[in-house]
Structure formats: C-alpha cells, structure tokens
Amino acid sequence: MYQPVASREVRYGDLDLWPTRLKTGFWAWLLHRITGLLMVFYLFLHIIVISSVLWGTGSFDAVMDVLKKPVFAAGEMLLVSAVIYHGLNGIRVILFDVGIGIKNQKALFWAAFALAVVGFFWALKVFWPLIFG
C-alpha cells in the first residue's frame, strides 16, 4: 500500500477550516447528542439523590428541601425541554430507520424543533411558580 513520505491531518485550527457547510442535519444530531448526555447525567444525579433515603427519611426530606430551591426548579424545566426535543427528534430518527422521510429530513427537523419550542414554553408555564413564585 502506498505511504506518503509525510502528511498531516487538516484540523479546524489550520487557517479557518471551520466548516460552514454544517447544515440542518448536523445541528439536529448535535442537539440530540447534547440532550441525550444531559439525560444520562440527570439519571446519575437522580439515583444519588433518591439513594439519600438509605440514611433514613429525615435525610431524604432534607435533600428534598434543598431541591425545592428555584435553581433546581429551573434545572428541571430545562430537563423537561431537553427530554421533549430528544423524544421528538428521536421519532424523526426512528422514521429514517423505517425508511420514511429521509429526503424530507430538514422539514421533519423543523417540525420536531417547532414542537419542542412549544414544549419549552409549556414547561416554562408549569415551572414558573416554582422558579419565581
């Protein structure tokens, strides 16, 4: 097999190779990844918080009191939004696996994203009194 004498991979840093070509599909995937990782992070957090009951109901209640703070309510609201987007885009990806809408992937993304925005405002309405009330 041919081997060049010397070669180096071209990376983002090499004289503005930042890809402007990244379009809808890439951002849909990136957002899917980020929200997915957030949910994994939350899962561990959830297990740690719930396991406080091992030290008795008093310790559990103490932890729950801390979680009533507005900053945690705001976090929960963002989590709900992330779950909604991840779920909707997940349906989009499942459709691709079944072979539906591959050529209309951009329209499907915007539909999922629009519904996720609606979901965000719904979550904001529900969590508003907990965050600011």
Partner: peptide, 23 residues
C-alpha cells in the same frame, strides 16, 4: 451512521447516501 446528513450536503453529484445506508 448517525444520520447526520453531512454526506448528502457535501456530495457534488447529489447522491443521497443516507437512503442507501438506512436500506
């Protein structure tokens, strides 16, 4: 393949690779 569609955007011959990979 995570259906990112970068290949479809990049292809100068307008081939839809994702359709093939999903198949």
């Amino acid at each position: 393949c995570h259906t990112v569609f970068n290949c479809v955007e990049a292809c100068p011959k307008d081939i839809n690779q994702t359709t093939a990979i999903q198949g």
